[in-house]
């Protein structure tokens, strides 16, 4: 979190995840080369390398884009979200290899400067079936590069959440450019309809998952909770799962956690990247953000020492067998006595 910095925040889970990425990449490359050696024995090594890394980066980008909505729909995908940053940086390096070898293969063998060649070797900018699709990939690679170099927590803290988030939302611009890059490139070289069907399938999956997850979130936001004497009804205590939370919205989103026979309420918004704390769980006595593992003590909303992040806390009560929360925050990091469920049995 924010006491001192190190280059890469690795823990046992992240190391396992990164090993998984590496093994997947290696198995994929071996399978790709083996398959192409049989199907396209005349293809050069460079051509195979460009194709292999291009397809892999495209696949990883789809995985990255669907992780967010998938976790909204099913908490089982949360470990993927927790480690998404490493997948994003890996994807950038894979795309960079694709881009670098493409420039070497297609733009560095003539008299023209390779950078000029990207834009000027094919000037059919008004043609759909001859469009210089590499230019789109070039701009997408710049966006992915900006995201990769700014992925460290240092940048989030020092660029500020607004700038950082805006920068990283550009992934959707990069995705649009890459879809066009792939489709317009394939129009020129690819005869098989299967390829276009796979691209369309990927695009449809990303779009549909975003729409479904967005709709689900909107429905939760539109639920009108019952209010009595300034307190908002949450649910019956037994409806809360141990070490998990229920999120309610009354102006801000509030996460009400149940743990060790007690209840506490904190802001649902993690101080790190605005992750949904209420979708995380309590690990080692701390509320743990599902996105990047930032932790807060449920009783006071403070990160455990030596860290210094704080989220707002809220007062709870039990009335008529229901849990109620006062939506007026007590302030960030303010101690609020947890509600002991034994007192109400």
């Amino acid at each position: 979190m924010s006491v001192g910095y190190t280059s890469i925040l690795w823990n046992a889970e992240k190391k396992r995840y990164d090993r998984g990425i590496l093994i997947f990449v290696l198995v994929y490359l071996v399978a790709f080369y083996a398959l192409h050696a049989i199907l396209h024995p005349n293809a050069t090594f460079e051509t195979l390398l460009i194709r292999a890394f291009g397809i892999l980066a495209f696949f990883f980008l789809h995985v990255i884009l669907v992780i967010g909505p998938l976790t909204r729909l099913n908490a089982a995908f949360l470990p993927l979200l927790y480690n998404r940053r490493h997948l994003g940086v890996s994807m950038f390096f894979i795309a960079l290899i694709h881009g670098a070898f493409s420039i070497q293969q297609f733009h560095n063998l003539g008299d023209m400067n390779p950078m000029r060649s990207i834009f000027l070797s094919n000037m059919e900018y008004l043609s759909l079936n001859q469009f210089p699709f590499q230019t789109l990939g070039f701009f997408a690679l710049i966006i992915l590069g900006l995201m990769a170099v700014s992925s460290h927590d240092f940048w989030l803290k020092n660029l500020g959440p607004m700038v950082w988030k805006s920068l990283h939302m550009l992934v959707y611009v990069a995705y649009a450019l890459i879809i066009l890059h792939v489709v317009l490139g394939a129009i020129q070289n690819e005869k098989s309809l299967t390829f276009f069907a796979i691209v369309l399938g990927g695009f449809t999956s990303v779009t549909l998952l975003h729409l479904v997850a967005g709709r689900m979130e909107k429905r939760v936001d539109e639920e009108k909770p019952i209010v009595d004497n300034g307190f908002v009804m949450v649910c019956r205590p037994r409806e809360l799962e141990e070490n998990r939370a229920k999120i309610i919205r009354w102006g801000e989103r509030i996460a009400v956690f149940k743990y060790d026979g007690k209840l506490s309420a904190v802001s649902n918004v993690c101080k790190h990247q605005g992750g949904p704390l209420g979708e995380g769980k309590i690990v080692d006595g701390c509320i743990t953000c599902p996105w990047h593992g930032y932790q807060y003590l449920p009783g006071n909303g403070q990160s455990p020492p030596p860290f210094n992040e704080k989220v707002a806390t809220y007062e709870l009560k039990i009335q008529d067998g229901y849990v109620w929360v006062n939506p007026e925050s007590k302030g960030e990091g303010v101690e609020v006595e947890p509600l002991n469920l034994k007192d109400y049995e």
Binding site: I8, G145, L146, V149, S150, H152, F154, W155
Partner: peptide, 10 residues
């Protein structure tokens, strides 16, 4: 070293 490329681009 990790933040250096970011310093160049940003």
């Amino acid at each position: 070293l990790i933040i250096w490329p970011g310093a160049v681009l940003l």
